[in-house]
Nucleic acid binder design. Sequence first.
RNA 1: GGUGCCAUAGCUCAGAUGGUAGAGCAAAGGACUGAAAAUCCUUGUGUCCGCGGUUCGAUUCCUCGUGGCACCA
Length: 305
Amino acid sequence: MTTTTTNSKRLIVIVGATGSGKTDLSIRLARHYHAPILSTDSRQLYKGMPIGTAQPTEEQLREAEHHFIACLDVEQEFNCGQFEQQALELLKRLFADHDTVVAVGGSGLYIRALCEGMDDLPTGDPEIRRSLSEKLQREGLAALCEELKQRDPRYYEQVDRSNPARVLRALEVCRQTGRPYSEQRTGERRSRDFRIIKIGTEMERATLYERINRRVDQMIDEGLEQETRALYPKKELNALQTVGYKELFGYLDGAWSREEAIELIKRNTRRYAKRQLTWFRRDPEIFWAAPDKTDKIIAYIDSCL
RNA sequence: GGUGCCAUAGCUCAGAUGGUAGAGCAAAGGACUGAAAAUCCUUGUGUCCGCGGUUCGAUUCCUCGUGGCACCA
């Protein structure tokens, strides 16, 4: 055989909206290919949030080897850069005794980090971030934009100047590195020493929304409120800026009734799903298929050489 | 059975002494490289219940239907 080892390994990447059947599909594929599962979900990473983030159940966890599920304390900061680095390290180990690994999750940025890599940019320094937040509070977004115009006129031209998060991050990098943000953003795609096959779980919008609504009711039945109460003291943490918890924190604070909170969770989950689809739709590498068409999906995967 | 009121966007409703209509919510489209389940931008989607009549012109006024609500029997 002349097969080179560089592309004998493959990563099957399952993407799609929340509630569209990714988890079940991932387990079927994992069993079919005797592959471990790597989660690409920015919230299922955390402990103490199994219901609200729809983590795989105990039973599902037994059906396949899972990684990056419930492995961080909610206090731990995490980001797409760390995810890229840790996921690649893990893959190296997994590929040592597996030809196939299944990645599954809905965090578009994390998936991009894994498949295409991130530029070599620093994680935000908390001090600088705090000082920028204060400036935003005191002087407004226009002041931040003004500073960006000075420090990085090129990025100033292209950035969404009504989005505080974007402007703030760019300034953070400028201040931290003393160099313009745009100069450090190459947008270059990193090469990977494994093949990547992307599968999207396709589902009619109306069906997806029904499933989402039903799943939220299920979460409530399973005890999402108790889960949220346990996390309430930590509600300011980034890990808990998450659909499901945010709305129930509001209920616990008296901002709205329990019923209203549940409706808000449904609406915000629908909106989240919509944003995910906007992200994934523009990726031409994704092979879209109904998640229950396992045979069709396997046939597609096997046809990818 | 009688009388009155109502019928406009997916929902709740506003509106024009007659010139084919607009708010909120829901929704749709998009952006997005270390907070990404985050953050942000854009967008009104309509046999104005139906058939006639008056009128240059009716979603608006009139008749008759149909459906809903209220009251009286």
